[in-house]
Design a protein around this nucleic acid. Structure first.
Length: 423
RNA sequence: AGAGAGGUGUCCGAGUGGUUUAAGGAGCACGCUUGGAAAGCGUGUAUACGGCAACGUAUCGGGGGUUCGAAUCCCUUCCUCUCUGCCA
């Protein structure tokens, strides 16, 4: 959420930056300031009257103690009058606060200066690429054929059990998932991240804090009986560890990693992107999350990008890193780098990780602050990234490592999987 | 799931309608004291909003209510603990 004080001081800059994110109603910035002015005014007169009530009430107490009942009763009448004035003020103030909040939550985060202009994925900027695209043998197949051929994943039975997009991993397919999760977690903890295993459902306050509510309500599965949401990413529960917390400056940076299944309704998706493991409703992911000093978040973002890059290099997959343009970025992000791996069999790039700096957008919503050296309270910055999401990594690995004899494995995974090759 | 007991500041803990302006203790910070430390003494030690400031307002798990006045009474909700039940 954007801070009113920032919007107040940077009215035009905010509008300009919102335009980069293709936000349709830049004039809401003015609305916010007007509402905030009104709120201030209402509070001033409310506080003033309330102060009179408070001190008169105390006086009544003193008068009663002295036994001066008559004067006490007279003061009660005065208080009654003031309280009548208070009622409408209170109501108006509550309404203005709701209105203000309703407008504020509509603003996406402002883009970082490095974010390129653009509307669609074609306008993302290629930062760098690496790895070598393998030369596959003739007759090489896409993962949806390979997993059928080797009985690694059964979509039909998953659909029978639950519905489409809920894959059933079997045998070596299931074990491979476990091996990947284990490898990714070990890789992250070796770099200093602390491992968490969070709840897989969250309450509305948590979903709101990281920005899923109200923006992406329709994308989450909702358990209405208890009003819990199935998490779309471990980012939601893990970032919320620090909701409503005032940290010490020396606690920063906080580095966390977590495995979780992710549940996404993916309402509105269609087309060839949804084939096989390219887009599913439930998948496994290992996430990295950091909460850092605001002066450090740019630098930390780059470190996280390099971290994920190293992980991809270790898997021997051809990859590229893109800086997303304003139109392709997420709602809460200030700057995002997407990682894609090349699927040699599908002959297309698959997004496998997204690393973002949220600046103070999430931390302001969730009131995650720290006390700096001077004793001043500041909002921390939050960042996160996938390290890594499994389905498309799985797809790219089986496609790129396929041979006529079976499917090989990158060296780093052999000990985790307990064999030299997958098949 | 049923019955009961609870939730107070950084922590422990007192507080059943009015100088509570949340006692007292511990911790922490600073100062005094000391050769240095400990002890002792003194001072300070939550957050948000409004205000240039003085200060005001709100917050005793959350929300609502009663009252001139609520940590305290009432309703509701969440959480923790104990017992019982059920269950991996």
């Amino acid at each position: 959420m954007l801070q009113v004080s920032f919007l107040r001081q940077n009215r035009d800059l905010a509008k300009k930056k919102l335009a980069i994110k293709h936000f349709a109603q830049p004039n809401l910035v003015d609305t916010v300031i007007d509402l905030d002015d009104e709120r201030k005014q209402l509070q001033a007169s409310f506080d003033e009257t309330q102060a009179k009530v408070n001190s008169a009430s105390k006086e009544i107490g003193a008068l009663m103690a002295k036994g001066d009942k008559e004067k006490a009763e007279a003061t009660k009448t005065d208080v009654g009058e003031w309280k009548k004035q208070l009622e409408p003020l209170k109501e108006k103030m509550a309404q203005v606060e709701i209105d203000l909040q309703n407008v504020l939550v509509q603003f996406p985060n402002l883009p970082h200066d490095l974010v390129p202009l653009g509307k669609s994925p074609e306008e993302n900027v290629l930062v760098r690429e690496g790895g070598v695209t393998p030369k596959l043998h003739p007759g090489a197949e896409a993962h949806w054929d390979l997993i059928k051929k080797y009985n690694l994943v059964d979509f039909e039975t998953g659909a029978k059990i639950t519905g489409s997009g809920f894959p059933l991993y079997i045998g070596k397919g299931a074990k491979f998932q476990r091996a990947l999760v284990q490898y990714f977690l070990d890789f992250n903890t070796a770099a200093g991240y602390t491992e968490y295993l969070p709840p897989f459902m969250v309450n509305a306050a948590s979903a709101f804090a990281t920005g899923q509510l109200p923006d992406k309500e329709g994308q989450m599965y909702h358990a209405t009986e208890d009003d819990f949401y199935l998490i779309p990413t471990a980012e939601v529960p893990v970032t919320n560890v620090f909701r409503d917390v005032v940290l010490k400056e020396t606690d920063l940076p906080i580095q966390m990693t977590a495995y979780s299944p992710c549940f996404r309704r993916e309402a509105g998706s269609f087309g060839k992107d949804v084939r096989g493991l390219n887009r599913v409703h439930q998948f496994e992911k290992v996430e990295i999350i950091q909460i850092v000093h605001p002066d450090k978040s740019d630098e930390v973002l780059n470190e996280m990008v390099v971290h994920v890059e190293k992980l991809l290099v270790s898997l021997g997959l051809p990859y590229r890193i893109l800086r997303l343009c304003g139109g392709d970025m997420g709602f809460a992000s200030a700057i995002t780098y997407d990682f894609e791996v090349y699927s040699a069999a599908q002959e297309r790039w698959l997004e496998v990780s997204s690393v973002s700096n949220f600046a103070a957008y999430q931390t302001y919503r969730m009131k995650c602050r720290f006390k700096d050296g001077a004793g001043k309270i500041q909002f921390a910055h939050s960042l996160n990234g996938s390290s890594l999401a499994l389905p498309r990594i799985f797809a790219a690995l089986v496609e790129n490592y396929q041979t006529e004899a079976g499917i090989a494995l990158p060296k780093v995974l052999q000990s985790y999987f307990g064999a030299e090759k997958l098949i």
